[in-house]
């Protein structure tokens, strides 16, 4: 959660720097986000799922997140650039996960990040596999070590986080009067 908290903070900072307002978020219908919580719930279920069902659950979770991205792209035109960037990051991760049956983790990157090498199949929400010399799309795997915070991320992760930063700032800058709740309040 560390990275997303930093991305959210950066997005809010960028939004304020561009004279945006956090209250624009209060105008978004909460139902819009429901599918994201469903995708998150699927990831939590992974902990209790039999090993054979884990990959299907990971894919299901990715498809739900993709459905949210597609749906919100059609509803939040003001934040289209941020959504597109998030969707690109989502797609890069989905691509490499589909090709490998999980997100491959580079052993060298894990060591560089200052982490012990363990059985990656058994950790971090059970969506990782060990990367080998023949792993397809290796450049999209978890190969980027971030030693200060002891994490290893993928290119898709970085693009997704940048998309979140942009999305937050774009929603903050969006014309609140055009969003459903503000419009209803102004008519009262």
């Amino acid at each position: 959660m560390l990275f997303v908290v930093l991305a959210l903070a950066a997005g809010v900072g960028l939004g304020y720097a561009q004279r945006g307002r956090l209250r624009s978020f209060a105008s978004l219908p909460l139902s819009l986000f429901l599918v994201l919580w469903l995708a998150f719930a699927l990831q939590l279920v992974l902990v209790y799922a039999p090993v054979g069902a884990r990959f299907a659950l990971v894919l299901g979770s990715y498809l739900l997140a993709g459905a949210w991205l597609w749906w919100s792209a059609s509803r939040l035109r003001e934040a289209l650039l941020g959504i597109s960037l998030m969707a690109f990051g989502w797609f890069l991760n989905l691509l490499v996960i589909s090709a490998n049956g999980g997100m491959p983790v580079s052993r060298a990157a894990v060591i560089r990040a200052g982490l012990p090498w363990t059985d990656v199949r058994e950790g971090s929400l059970f969506k990782h596999v060990a990367a080998g010399p023949d792993t397809p799309l290796r450049f999209l795997c978890d190969v980027i070590a971030v030693p200060p915070v002891h994490r290893v991320v993928s290119l898709g992760d970085i693009v997704l986080l940048l998309g979140i930063v942009l999305f937050v700032s774009q929603v903050m800058r969006s014309d609140a009067t055009r969003l459903p709740m503000q419009a209803a309040a102004s008519q009262r």
Binding site: M1, F3, V4, V5, A7, L8, L22, R23, F25, A26, L28, L30, F33, L36, W37, A39, F40, L42, Q43, S61, Y62, L64, A65, W68, M86, G89, W90, N93, L94, I97, M103, V105, A109, V110, A113, L115, P116, T118, V120, G123, S124, L125, K127, H128, D142, H150, R151, V152, V153, S154, G156, D157, L160, L161, I164, F167, V168
Partner: peptide, 30 residues
């Protein structure tokens, strides 16, 4: 009203955390 707005903002931002959990795949020791 302000409290409701604050909760809605927090929920919207937390939902992006849910997106990260669902679509991101960083490795950390757990």
């Amino acid at each position: 009203m302000l409290k409701v707005q604050a909760v809605r903002i927090a929920l919207a931002l937390a939902s992006l955390g849910a997106l990260w959990a669902a679509a991101g795949a960083p490795w950390k020791c757990t």
